[in-house]
């Protein structure tokens, strides 16, 4: 699978990363190498093998349904750039 400039730009946009114009070529090449490795792996016959959901051979512990957290809003909001009436303020989202 090859990866071109548009794919890099699109992927960067989806991940909200900005890439310098000068880095695009290099990034495209690097990502193409990674995808070549993926192609190599995909060529292996995996029929009959359960997909791996997690590398550890362990299962999730479940938690009892209890409220264990208390309100720490003031502490958490100290690092927020902008708050008002307890809300976090963000650049206007128009959907």
């Amino acid at each position: 699978m090859s990866f071109d400039r548009t794919d890099v730009e699109r992927t960067a946009h989806l991940a909200r990363l900005s890439i310098n114009e000068s880095d695009i070529e290099n990034t495209t090449e690097t990502l193409t190498h990674i995808l070549q490795l993926v192609d190599q792996m995909q060529a292996v016959d995996t029929s009959g093998i359960t997909p791996l959901a997690h590398p550890l051979e362990a299962v999730q512990r479940l938690r009892a349904d209890q409220v264990t957290e208390s309100d720490q809003r003031d502490a958490f909001q100290q690092i927020a750039p902008a708050t008002e009436n307890g809300l976090y303020l963000v650049p206007k989202v128009i959907d």
């Binding site: 008002e84 809300l87 303020l89 650049p91 206007k92 989202v93």
Partner: peptide, 11 residues
């Protein structure tokens, strides 16, 4: 999306 000085509030 009410106007918080041109920003959105998140709860």
């Amino acid at each position: 999306h009410e106007d918080f000085h041109g920003m959105s509030g998140i709860d």
